[in-house]
Structure formats: C-alpha cells, structure tokens
Nucleic acid binder design. Structure first.
Lengths: 416, 416
DNA sequence: CTGACTTGATTAAAATTTTTAGTAAAGTTT
DNA sequence: AAACTTTACTAAAAATTTTAATCAAGTCAG
C-alpha cells in the first residue's frame, strides 16, 4: 500500500473526530501541495485556514513519513528566506494512456512529472466495436511487458481520448455508440486502480494552464489543432467541462450553409473547412489536379498527414502556405465568435498546427481584426503553445491526481 | 448609520484579533444569509465551518440587534423542525436604476426584495455626450422628489445598462466613447453611497439564476431579447463576466458574410438579422410595400416597437407570425453555436420576446435540432422566462448587495 | 392517541487549537 | 558591521471545538 493510501486509511480508521480531522487535514495538505506545487509554511497556513503551530506539526509529521520534502528556499522579501515544501517524488505514479486517432501513447510519470517509464506508442484505431476495449487492455499489458513495469508501482490510470466524455459518470461516446458502457469502471475492475478519463482537448487545456502558455491566467481559450479542431475553455482558472462534459465541440459548429457532409451527420461543420482532415483532403485533390507543390515528392499520397503539409510550408512551399492561410482565415472567423462570446484574456494555439508558427497565426489574427469588436479583442493575446512531447501527458497526470483526491475526499466526507 | 455599517465599523475598530474575527464572522454570516436567503443554524455551521456553540452566540447577537430574524420553520426530516433564519427587512435598501434604450426605470427595494418606493420610468436616451451623466443625476433627484425619498434611507445604488461595462474598474463604453471616465466613482461622490454597475443582460441572468427559470441550475444560457440581443452566461452557478466584463456580446457575432452594416461598425452582425431593431425595420419596409398585416392599423409607423409586432402575432396575424418565425430560425442557429461550445443544461429566453411564447420557441427549437449535435442538445431544455416587472430589478439588488459585501470584505481583509 | 424514536436547541466540562508573546536564526539593506 | 525584516520555533494564556447530557418538538407505528 502506498503512503498516500496509508493516509486515507488513517482517516477511515480514526476513532475520534479529533484524530479524524487531523488525518483529513494531512490529506488536504497533500492536495494543496500538489495543486500549488511548492508552498511555504505561511502559504499553507493561509490556504488551509489553520494556525502556524498546527500546520507546523502536520508538516513535520508528513516530512517524517517522507511524503513531502523541503525543496528550495523562496525569495526573500527583506528577511529570512522561507522554506518551500513540495510533495516527494514517487508518491503517486500515473500510467498515462493517450488515445489518439491512429495510435495509443503511453508513459508512466509521478506526481512531480518525473518520467518513471519511457513513453511508447502503439498502433491503435478507435472504432465502436465491442472488442476495442479488450484490445486496449492488451496494449496496456504489452506496454507493461515492454518496459518491465510491475502493476503495483502504478497508483492510478489516466485516460485521454477525443470525443464526448461524460465526466460525471465516466461514460463516453467514442468506444461503443451507446452511452451506457462505462470504460472507467471496466478498467478499474481489470486493474484494481483508480481510473480518470478526460477528453484530449480538456487535457491539453489543463497542461497549458498548469505548465504552458495559459499559466497564471484566468480566462483562456485553448484551441487544439490536429486531425480535428477542439476547444478547451478555461474560466476563472479552471477548465470548464460543460454540464455533461461536452463543452468545446467547436469542430462541429455549423459554419457553412448547406455545406459538405460531416462524419457527425450534419452539414457544413467547421471541421469540413478548417481541420487536418480538410487540409489533407484538399491537398490530395489539388495534387491530383496537378498543382505545383513539394508535396508531390511524397511517395504515397494515402499516407499524407497534416504535419507533412506544415513541414513543406515551413520550407517555403507556396501552395502549402496558401492552403494553411485559407484554413487560418476560416478558423480565425470561428475564433472571433468565441472571443465575442467569452471575452478571454488569451487564445492559445496548441496541437500539431502550432508548428506552423506565424503561417497560421497571421491569417487567424487577420480574421480576428475583421470579425471581432475592438474593445473585446484589444487585450486578447494570441499565443502559440510551447509544450514538449510529454506536455499533454503532464496535464493528464494532473487531472488524474486531482480526480483521485476529489473522489476520495468526497467519499471520506460522506461517512462523516 | 445603518446596522450593517455599524457591524463593518466594529471590524475596523476591533483592537484584538479575537474581537476582529468575531465581528468579521458576523459580517460573513450576514453575507451567507443574504446569499442563501434562509438557513438553519446547522446549515450555517456547515457553510461557515464554525461550531454550534460559536454560531449560536453569533446568531443570538445578530438577532438581538434585529439584523436577522427567525422566520419560518424548515421541513422536518423525522424530528423537531429547525428554525430558519433570514436577514431582517430593511437592512440594506437599494436604489435600482435600470437604464434602457429610451428610458430609465427606478425603484427602491430592500434586501428581501420588498418594494419600499414604487417604480417609475422617465424618458432618457443614452448618447455619448458629456452632459448625459449630469442628466442622469437630475433624473434620480427627480425620482427622489416624486416619491418623497430621503437619501439617508438608501444604502447603495445599483445601475444596469446595455453595452460594454468593465466590471473590475467600473468604467463603461456607453456614456462617453473613451474608456477612462468612471461613472461609478462619479455617482459615488455625488451621492456618497456605494455604486454597483452591471450590464443589463448579466443583471437579467442573475435574476433568472436567483428567482427565475435558472434556479438550482449550474450551467445556463440566458438570452435577453429586446431591441438588441444579449447573452448572459451562467457557469458553475455563477454569472460569467468575461475577463474584462465583456462576455456575451452575441448580438455582434458576425453571422452573414458581407451582410448589412451594423452600428458597431462591422458587417453582418447577428443583430442585423435577429433583433427587435431588425423586426421593426423589416416590418416598416414590408408595410410600405403593402404587405397585408394588422400592423397597418397603427397610427404612427415611426412609433412601431417590437412588442407591437409580438402583440399582433399573438392575435394571429400571419405576417407577424412569419416574421417572428424567420427571426427565431436565425436566432436558433446562433444559439446552436453557443450550445455546441458551452453544453449548458438549459437555455432561458428572457426579455420582451418571451411574450411571443411558442411562436418564437418552436422556430428556435427547429434550428437547434438541425444545427446541434444530438448528445449535446438532448438534455438541454429551452425555457421561457417567467419574471415579472420587478424581476430584473431584483437581480440588480442582488448584484449590488453582493458587490457591497465583496468590496468591504476585500478591504477589511487587507488591513489585516 | 400514545409511546418510541427522531432531530433540534442549549448548556457545561474536557480537550484541543489558536492567540499572543518572546527568542533565535537567516537574510537584506544602509 | 549594524539595524531592520522576515521566518522558525516554543510556551503560556485565551478561545474554540468536542463531547456529553438534557430538554424540546416533531414523526410515525401500532
């Protein structure tokens, strides 16, 4: 049993209200420390509303158990430097399972984002067949084998995937078309661990908020540009999920009257004119027509991916540049609607398209200038994401740990 | 000095931390009680994290000062009924100043929404001339005279108006075109009272949340339909203001490519095809063309107002019904974008158009079915507002009192 | 209708925490 | 190097929270 589970057990086993309260405060202290990453004793006193002596004894106890460590010293503001406390490494280890359109990427990281087992991708395609979920289990077991991972070293599983995920009950509409099958429960039973499930864009938004371009901001839109187009909405410093977890489905906003048929069943969705799918389809059609472009050098046109187009555009290919620009203009028009409605302080462009840099930002900015009210746009910065390969996994770790604490604290407070 | 101000003074004058804490807790108790309207001792203990004995003595003290009263008894859940406490009448009296497009409406209400001085409307037109603000002061003084109101009986002023209002610093873009003039400060100086200023749609959203169709809901869109079209966004049970207070400007979302010129400077804004202004302009043009409609009986076509069109539509006028339906279709298309982005649990249709009932809801619903993803739309109810004439003023009272508490508690906690 | 069983209100003693105050340690600034 | 700040830690005094007990006011089954 892990140190954190010991602590939770201590709360459950407490005989008097006093010992219970003390143990519960230690759990809350761990959560606060995870949330804020590094805090001084004084910060903790303020955050948790306890006195210095009490907080001191709590910290001392957790220090002795090696659950937290004095890491650095904070900046002095005219006197002695305060000690900064941090959760110890390896207190909570998360298996990150990032389900992408044609692959699953896995990595194991601890609460401080240390990589415990190196990432690896496996081919995997989402469909709505019944066997998918069992396939996923097999891929996970394969990863365990490949990296020599013992299951007992994993504290919880974090799952991210595109599509509609009901965050309140843990169902989704990606595997199986009926809403009743509960992946979280299935995996939880299979592995005997806490499972957190989150939509990929919302995971990205958490990453940007905690470690990326949205740090220290309150109201931000995170646009994830890849095969599809997703939106993560940050409001009051929190990622807004939507009433059932379905917020941010901007890719299927209807944008063109009587437009092209989208795979979602509607016509003229934004994704039909501004997405990786659109880019690839358009490029394929144009290449067949004989348009001059570096893309023609590609061996197999069927393998064409959005990143190839971005790549040649960055090399100066005029066709690719124009294609990305027209996409940027349409996307900018959509973003202008969002800004007009939500008045954010920043828009963060994330995902594979961020690599296109100003080739995409300038067309977007152009549309914003045209379609947004001055006062609302003026203070809204357009920023490119700067997260690295493990960036989204870090957000997934964060979501998983938060979910774990939330679930446990709710059930602990119930059995008052 | 009012009872509430006495209490605040007590906090400031407190010599020891202990007496200060106690006085501060009484202020917080008053705020909690205002926020939740009616609470039992047990509720207060839970909400504020204090023990029964302590809370009991706080309540006793405030009861003796006549700041709160035991009002009703709660429902029994198998034993003795608990006493429900409520803030006493007349503890905080708000002058509500609702600035509309062509009028100002005023009313004085207390913290429990009792009308102390009957409402009255005065003609008033917003422009960006310097003299406007002084005109407003004159109209307020006129109201005081007409209703025999003594200034000392007013605790604070609540101001609602259309347009962009920076809620953090109290400036607006309705009076004066430059952003630097501060109406709140001006009126505060003129009357020596706290002034809260809020955008009319956000005020309406607060009303719907506290007393209307959005009660007990978490994530709701409130559409205010009048001369313009406004949107109030309720997220996690709070009205979302936007980073600078400019959220919800849906009327100026660009909706028609190279459409009609809007007064905001852009082309093809939603308001040019779905608003009271559109309705009136379209009707005037059609009547001149000789379309058969009951509206022709109107004496003066220049006086045509949206409510006239709604009225004849309710009487069965086919032209008006069709006109409203086409507006509803367009509006529904816009709302479908919002639902797709924000996944609310309900959409509340408020404002004068709500009187059109199913004549407007059915066309809207029709568009929603066409343009929104099934899963997101399914659990989203479309509801009509049921607020009465003073409904929006009640939201303004609520905003004003909340603002007053927030401001005071912030400054009190600063001089720790 | 009565009696057993709830839950709520109130009070008092015991346990614990918070204040308050004082001292030492560790920096910064003049 | 001295004076001033801020943090860390300890201990006595003061206040609050627990805990427990009693009374009041309901519900509900028989």
């Amino acid at each position: 049993m892990s140190l954190l589970e010991d602590l939770l057990e201590e709360v459950r086993a407490a005989k008097t209200t006093i010992t219970r309260k003390s143990a519960l405060n230690k759990v809350k202290l761990m959560r606060t420390l995870f949330d804020k990453e590094m805090l001084t004793l004084g910060d903790l006193v303020q955050d948790m509303g306890l006195s210095f002596p009490t907080m001191n004894s709590l910290v001392l106890d957790l220090h002795q158990r090696k659950m937290l460590v004095p890491k650095d010293k904070g900046e002095s503001i005219g006197g002695r430097k305060p000690v900064l406390y941090q959760i110890n490494d390896g207190i909570f280890n998360v298996l990150c399972v990032e389900i992408e359109r044609f692959a699953v990427r896995m990595v194991v990281m601890d609460n401080n984002n240390n990589v415990l087992f190196e990432p690896k991708s496996y081919p995997f395609e989402i469909s709505t067949q019944e066997s998918d979920i069992e396939d996923l289990v097999q891929v996970i077991l394969q990863y365990f084998e490949d990296r020599h991972i013992e299951e007992q070293n994993i504290s919880a599983i974090g799952l991210s995937m595109p599509g509609l995920i009901n965050f309140k009950i843990g169902t989704n509409q990606t595997f199986y078309s009926n809403n009743s099958f509960n992946i979280s429960d299935y995996l939880k039973q299979k592995f005997g661990k806490h499972v957190a499930m989150v939509n990929d864009v919302k995971g990205a938004a958490i990453s940007e908020l905690a470690y990326g371009a949205a740090q220290d901001k309150e109201n931000v839109l995170v646009i994830l540009m890849d095969w599809g187009i997703g939106l993560g909405i940050i409001i009051d410093g929190k990622v807004y999920m939507g009433n059932e977890g379905f917020s941010g489905e901007m890719g299927h906003m209807v944008f063109v009257d009587e437009g092209e048929l989208c795979y979602c069943g509607k016509r003229g969705c934004l994704e039909t004119i501004a997405s990786g799918v659109y880019l690839v389809n358009q490029a394929r059609a144009d290449i067949e027509k004989g348009v001059p472009t570096l893309l023609k050098n590609l061996k197999n046109l069927a393998d064409l991916q959005p990143q190839h187009i971005i790549q040649v555009a960055n090399q100066g290919d005029q066709y690719a540049i124009d294609l990305i620009a027209s996409l940027g203009n349409n996307l900018g028009k959509a973003i202008s609607l969002l800004i007009q409605i939500l008045n954010p302080e920043a828009v963060v462009l994330s995902g594979k398209f961020a690599k296109a840099g100003s080739l995409i930002t300038i067309p977007i900015q152009q549309s914003l200038n045209k379609y947004t009210m001055n006062a609302i746009r003026q203070k809204c910065e357009i920023q490119l994401s700067s997260l690295d390969d493990n960036g989204y996994a870090q957000g997934l770790v964060r979501y998983t740990v938060e979910d774990y604490f939330k679930n446990n604290l709710v059930t602990l407070n119930m059995n008052n």
